[in-house]
Amino acid sequence: MKRDRDLRDLVKLYSDEMKPVPTGGKKLPDGSVLEVVRNDVTSKVELLHWEDGESAISAEFFCGGKRYVPSHEAVHLKWLPSGASSYLSTRDLFEELQAFIVLGLNASSESATQLAHFCLASFFGDVIALF
């Protein structure tokens, strides 16, 4: 009888731990980071795991006894990266953003600079305040 109860507790504990944890991106306790990405072949939303400059993409990730899966809501995001790729230098990336804004909106260089700052800062909305 006690053995059955112990077994039930163990199964419950295991299933609780393995319950999927939806995430839209998260810094994990071990210092690695999860981000949602969209597979450019299947269009499915997946998770990118980043650790020490290396990235791996998968439908789910296990960390600290938890099973992370992409948030269902991520399908509503029209644009998601398909992975992480080299930006050469911050200056190159910034100039690329400016060029995209100037070309897309015929905006002045000053406006493009201001908007490029906003775009870059939006990627750190969880650590800085921006409005």
Binding site: E35, P81, S82, S86, T90, L93, F124, V127
Partner: peptide
């Protein structure tokens, strides 16, 4: 295509610099 390239580069920028920004 261009948007996807930019999104991928911006993501790498975030991941590489998150600690520095913090």
């Amino acid at each position: 295509l261009k948007i996807n390239e930019l999104q991928n580069r911006l993501l790498q920028y975030r991941l590489q610099n998150l600690n520095a920004v913090m």
